[in-house]
C-alpha cells in the first residue's frame, strides 16, 4: 500500500444555497420553491457556523436562458470572508468575468460545458484553473455503467449526455477544470449517504480536487465519503438548511473520528 503523504489540508464542508430571483429558496425537485431567506443573512450564518466554502446555485438562470440579475454576488463578496462559488447560467467568458470581478472566487459550469467542452479551456485560459469548477450530474445505470446527464435543472428537458462519467471528468480535467463537483443522481435527495462506489472510481480517475454531492442524511455519511471515497469536500443542502446537521456538531464528530477539519 502506498503511504499517504504528510498533509494538513482539511476536508471542506460546503453548504449549497439555491438562489432564485435574488433570494435563497428551497424546493422539492425544482418545483414549489419556498423562500428560505435573505442571501446575506444565510451566508453569514453558515460562515459563523464554520462552513469552509459556500456554493450559490442560481436556479433562475439554468433552464430558461434569460439574462439574470446577479447583483447579489457583489454584496456577498463584500461581507463574506470565506471563499464562495457561483453556479448556474454561466454561458460565456463575459458572464464569468462579471461574476469574478464582483468578487466570487470560483464559477461552476455544467450543461454549457457539455454543449461546448472548449468553454472549460476558455475559462481556464482567461482566469486560471483555480476559478473553474465543472459540475457533473451522473447516474449509475442498471448495467453498472456511469452516465452523465444534462439539463437536470428541468426534468422535462433532462437528457443523457453522450459521455460516460469517467471519460467526461478526465476530459474536463484535461481541458482545464480546477475542481469537479460530482452530483450523484441515484443518491440525490434520498439521504441514504453519498455514492461511495462511484465517487471512489472518479477519485481514482482524476488528480484535481473532487467534491461529493447528493445523498447526505446524517453525520456518518460525511465520515464515510471522506474516509472511503477520499474526496476533498462534501456538499450538502437540505441537512444544513433544515438544521438536521449543525455544522459545528458535524465538524466535532469528524474531528473525533480523525478526519482533518478546520475548527
Amino acid at each position: 500500500m502506498k503511504e499517504p503523504f504528510p498533509n494538513n489540508l482539511t476536508k471542506r464542508i460546503i453548504p449549497c444555497l439555491d438562489v432564485k430571483d435574488g433570494v435563497v429558496v428551497k424546493g422539492v425537485q425544482f418545483r414549489n420553491h419556498k423562500v428560505m431567506g435573505d442571501i446575506l443573512e444565510l451566508a453569514q450564518r453558515y460562515r459563523d457556523e464554520g462552513a469552509d466554502e459556500l456554493v450559490f446555485y442560481d436556479i433562475t438562470a439554468s433552464s430558461d436562458g434569460r439574462v439574470v440579475d446577479k447583483s447579489w454576488v457583489k454584496k456577498v463578496a463584500q461581507i463574506l470572508d470565506i471563499p464562495f462559488c457561483v453556479a448556474g447560467g454561466i454561458r460565456s467568458v463575459a458572464d464569468a468575468r462579471q461574476i469574478l470581478n464582483d468578487g466570487a472566487d470560483k464559477i461552476s459550469i455544467n450543461s454549457p460545458a457539455l454543449e461546448r467542452p472548449e468553454f472549460i479551456s476558455e475559462l481556464a485560459d482567461a482566469f486560471g484553473v483555480q476559478c473553474v469548477v465543472v459540475g457533473v450530474d451522473t447516474r449509475r445505470e442498471d448495467d453498472g455503467s456511469l452516465a452523465v446527464y444534462q439539463y437536470t435543472g428541468d426534468e422535462t428537458k433532462t437528457i443523457q449526455a453522450k459521455h460516460d462519467t469517467i471519460s467526461w471528468v478526465k476530459n474536463a480535467q484535461e481541458l482545464g477544470a480546477g475542481e469537479i463537483v460530482l452530483n450523484c443522481m441515484n443518491n440525490d435527495g434520498v439521504k441514504q449517504g453519498y455514492d461511495l462506489e462511484q465517487l471512489e472510481k472518479i477519485r481514482d480517475a482524476i488528480t484535481i480536487p473532487l467534491i461529493a454531492s447528493g445523498g447526505a442524511g446524517e453525520m456518518q455519511h460525511f465520515y464515510d465519503v471522506f474516509k472511503h471515497a477520499r474526496v476533498d469536500g462534501a456538499l450538502a443542502a437540505s441537512v444544513f438548511h433544515s438544521g438536521t446537521i449543525p455544522i459545528p456538531d458535524l465538524k466535532a464528530f469528524l474531528k473525533q473520528k480523525q478526519i482533518p477539519v478546520r475548527i
Binding site: L9, K11, V129, T207, P209, R230
Partner: peptide, 17 residues
C-alpha cells in the same frame, strides 16, 4: 510534484507550521 493522492491545485484550508 505528483504524489499518491495529492490533488492539485492545493485547494482548501490548511494550517501554518
Amino acid at each position: 510534484q505528483k504524489q499518491y493522492d495529492l490533488t492539485v491545485p492545493h485547494m482548501g484550508w490548511n494550517k501554518l507550521i
